[in-house]
């Protein structure tokens, strides 16, 4: 029988680095990433699971960190937007496509859009526009009207299929 704990020890590998942290029950993963690990690339837009600006990857699947309670993840492999770049500091192909195609304006929605695109393209290398729209359905962007985001996802799909075009 487990005792009731006032704080919970979690062991996470975050962007490849192992962390042992004490987290308070009730706190969101978003709060812990931002406040305890200083990973501020994951953003707060609503805290109710509607905007997607807080998206991260937990154990290989994308999730909204504002509505994942940190204490419920005793061991987890977590990837944040900061962990998308290669170790050499180069943007991943999906990131590069979003930059080249001016996918974003303010970029505040980037975590949701990038992770959604990454998960979509891992499963559906050649998505239709409808599939792109439905993959982005968990995230809001207020700047772009989504046109440039769609274009960026299409470009990312091309880049992933043919990493070295010439």
């Amino acid at each position: 029988m487990d005792d009731l704990a006032q704080s919970v020890l979690v062991q996470w590998r975050v962007n490849g680095v192992l962390h042992e942290l004490d987290v308070l029950p009730g706190l969101s993963l978003l709060d812990v990433l931002r406040e305890q690990l200083n990973l501020t690339g994951t953003h707060m837009g609503c805290m109710t699971g509607h905007c997607g600006a807080c998206t991260v990857m937990i154990d290989g699947r994308i999730a909204k960190s504002c509505i994942a309670q940190a204490a419920t993840l005793p061991r987890a492999e977590i990837r944040t937007i900061e962990g998308l770049m290669g170790p050499d500091g180069r943007l991943s192909p999906v990131q590069q496509a979003f930059w080249d195609e001016a996918g974003f304006q303010c970029g505040y929605c980037a975590p949701g859009m990038l992770f959604s695109a990454i998960e979509l393209l891992a499963e559906t290398p050649d998505p239709t526009d409808a599939e792109i729209d439905s993959a982005l359905a968990g995230s809001l962007c207020r700047c772009t009207g989504y046109q440039s985001l769609r274009r960026a996802v299409r470009a990312a799909a091309r880049a992933l299929k043919d990493p070295n075009p010439d």
């Binding site: 029950p25 009730g26 109710t48 909204k64 509505i67 309670q69 204490a71 419920t72």
Partner: peptide, 27 residues
């Protein structure tokens, strides 16, 4: 009782709900 958190956390974050004890059944 909490597992995925998708239902509970919005209310907790908004201060609508403040449980005394969480029982995590995720394991």
């Amino acid at each position: 009782v909490i597992a995925g958190g998708q239902e509970l956390m919005p209310s907790i974050n908004q201060g609508v709900l403040a449980p005394e004890v969480y029982v995590d059944i995720g394991g």
